[in-house]
Amino acid sequence: MDPQATIVLGKAIGAGLAMIGAAGGGIGIGISVGGAVMAMGRNPDHTATIQTNMILGVAFAEAVAIYALVVSLIILFVLS
């Protein structure tokens, strides 16, 4: 096999595998937003506070997915 093709193949597979980590972030965001929406439905007076905390939690959960994204971006565009 062409060594260049092997490198591209390995990079593609590695980047795809690295993005599995994004699933965790998705689950976390879903749980936190679900809980926040339920809380907002029960007491709409506290919507502002709940929303702030929700965005903060979503950002934390999203950060994990973004780490996975950064790893796959490094695999794709920095490794050679």
Binding site: E62, A63, I66, Y67, V70, L73
Partner: peptide
């Protein structure tokens, strides 16, 4: 690390 990579990842992915 988490500060810098969160912003970098989000914005670079957006650019791509």
């Amino acid at each position: 690390l988490s500060f810098s990579f969160r912003l970098l990842g989000a914005m670079f992915a957006g650019a791509i």
